[in-house]
Amino acid sequence: MDRLLRVESLSKNGILKDISFIVYKGEMIAVMGPSGSGKSTLLYNVSGMDNADDGKVWLKDTEIVGLSEEERAKIRLKKMGFVFQQMNVLSNLNVIDNIMFPAVYANGKKREKQIREKALKLMEEFEIGDLADHMTNEVSGGQLQRACILRSIMMDPEILFADEPTGALNQRAAGTVIDTFITLNKEGATILMVTHDSKVALKCDRVLYILDGVLKGELVLGKYEHEQEEERQKKINVWLNSFGW
């Protein structure tokens, strides 16, 4: 399997302590742990949004930690996608413009028409096609989060990061969002997702457990099949319990 992301001895300010792991192409990885354990911080450091104190992170062949602010920004733009818990959008743009934003920024006005077509197609595919011209405060949380996911894949990134994407959603919306991720993963996307919801984690290939900044353990579940749901749930519960979850 291809190594997509390699994290080596990552440390940050007492919040992360010497963390190492690998993400392979096509995997969907869940990162779990109690609040304050450093999960989100891990995400921000691995993606280059924050600057780690120590350690290295390779995205394919490029080492990220040593790069300058501007260089990391470039990598984020072209090779990474982000979905946040709070469904952060640019409030003065409508839904489709939000989705198009990173692509338009990267490519300039020239290819805007093509970008729009692509965005519309994705929106149709994920069943929010008729929301294109709505303003962001006119759509539900689940719909908005799905739009954010689409935004994150517009540039065909190497890897998708998600920080508690269902945290602010109700059951139903959370379900559709997770389904979106699963669909993308089936289509080949590599996803690293922080979550506190075991029902989400059980749908991932692997689960990492972070406790007080330390990587305590790893659970390999393999590719998700619907029939395996109950079994996986049991497995993950037992595993989580062992950490005092």
């Binding site: 304050g36 354990s37 005092g244």
Partner: peptide, 10 residues
């Protein structure tokens, strides 16, 4: 109240 705390502090 413990939402933002680590396990010990919780």
């Amino acid at each position: 109240p413990t939402g933002a705390l680590n396990s010990q502090n919780t």
